[in-house]
Amino acid sequence: MKYLLICIFTVVSNADILLVATPSCRFDTLDSKMVKRLFMKKTTQYQGEAVKVYDNRELYNDFIQTFIKKTPTKMNIYWTRMIFTGTKKPPKKVTGNDLLSLSKESDICHLSYTTQPIQGWKEIHVH
């Protein structure tokens, strides 16, 4: 069992992360700086469209190191400052199952990340 968990962990850690969005999002590509701004909640809009971002519980550390280019500690410090000065809250943490149910809210643009394509979500290309 222990061996199996280690294998799963290794797969998750090294997996390529896909940025995904619900079909209501009007964009299909994002530049890397905009991804960073959205997930650090420096903006909540892209091209005039409101975007709700969600962190994936299982992939959080890998995502912030790959896409946000920060260490988990630095990111914690960033959010600590934002929270305890009443500035903003971090994105809600969700699981893969949560993402499936979010796709039913067809009128809102949701943005998150995963390792596999999810039914009802489209892949967003990052450049």
Binding site: F9, V12, D55, R57, E58, L59, Y60, N61, P72, N76, W79, T80, I83, K89, P90, P91, K92, K93
Partner: peptide, 12 residues
Amino acid sequence: MKHITFATLLST
């Protein structure tokens, strides 16, 4: 457990 972060704790 590596993936349990501050933001995860926050949501609880």
